[in-house]
């Protein structure tokens, strides 16, 4: 149980921080596709008997590079969709070969946050620190390419390179967290808290901090309720994310409504 709390906390911090940029850049589809597609890699790794994290890593990085490469030649959302379904199709193939597949699918997709072994904590923490460091390095170009890609290009910042770098950060985050919390939880944690924070604060620094705090609150609450009710933790995370964003939108709309007529 202690392991679960530590793992969930680490995941929430990463997801909250990465999620801010996902929402800022409108990259929700890629943030969904990379961890989700990586699940195919885990299935392949299980099949050939290596550590699923290795398979996740290979597919996540491959997916990030593939989306970047295909997106250069065609529409970005089409590229993301096709890269995702190809990885998932491979996952379906690998799963059909393995013997005890159904349970494995379920835990990879929806996570097993209530059963984290101690020896997985250290790699999670390591990858998490790498993620945050990469975000800190890319911080300013990420912001600039988000609002004015042409200006960035004119100042020597390759928007494509920054985009690929960002997708690799998402891949890193996916690799460390998916085996613990599952695809679903990771994605919901990246979108819900960050979107809520974005509509409540004005400065980027506050938004990142609030996003991390909200992600922590969401995860802690979800783990606790899941522990009590014995229902899947992903259900609570997904619902809490949508509910908190809905509340924030209603709150800002009411506040705006009160000031507007004056």
């Amino acid at each position: 149980m202690v392991n679960t709390w530590i793992a969930a906390t680490l995941v929430a911090v990463i997801a909250g921080a990465v999620g801010f940029f996902v929402v800022l850049r409108g990259a929700a589809f890629a943030a969904h596709a990379i961890p989700h597609g990586a699940f195919g890699g885990a299935a392949g790794a299980v099949l050939i008997g290596v550590n699923p994290i290795a398979g996740l890593g290979v597919f996540a990085v491959g997916g990030a590079l593939g989306i970047g490469w295909l997106g250069r030649r065609g529409r970005h959302d089409v590229a993301t969709a096709l890269a995702l379904v190809l990885m998932l199709g491979l996952g379906a193939l690998f799963l059909s070969f393995s013997v005890e597949y159904a349970a494995a699918v379920y835990s990879l997709l929806f996570g097993e946050v209530l059963g984290v072994p101690s020896d997985e904590l250290l790699p999670i923490a390591g990858l998490g620190i790498a993620c945050i460091a990469a975000l800190a390095v890319l911080y300013r170009p990420l912001m600039l390419t988000s609002i004015a890609p042409e200006v960035a290009e004119a100042r020597g910042v390759g928007a494509q390179r920054i985009e690929t770098g960002f997708l690799l950060v998402v891949a890193l985050a996916a690799t460390m967290t998916v085996p613990v919390v599952g695809v679903l939880l990771m994605f919901s944690l990246m979108i819900g808290p960050a979107a809520t924070a974005g509509s409540l604060t004005r400065s980027p620094r506050n938004a990142i901090a609030l996003s991390v705090l909200l992600a922590l609150a969401t995860v802690w609450l979800a783990v606790a309720v899941s522990y009590l009710t014995n229902l899947p933790v992903g259900f609570f995370v997904g619902t809490l994310g949508a509910v908190s964003y809905g509340c924030a939108r209603i709150w800002t709309a009411r506040r705006r409504g009160r000031t507007a007529p004056a």
Binding site: V23, G26, A27, A28, F29, A31, H32, Y106, L109, F110, L184, F187, S188, I191, G192, A195, L231, P232, G234, F235, F236, V237, G238, T239, G241, A242, Y245
Partner: peptide, 20 residues
């Protein structure tokens, strides 16, 4: 994009529940 992501997240949460 965000709205789609949130609906997707909530829907996947429901899927997790029902599949469970």
């Amino acid at each position: 994009d965000v709205a789609t992501g949130l609906v997707l997240g909530a829907g996947l949460g429901l899927a997790a529940l029902f599949l469970y």
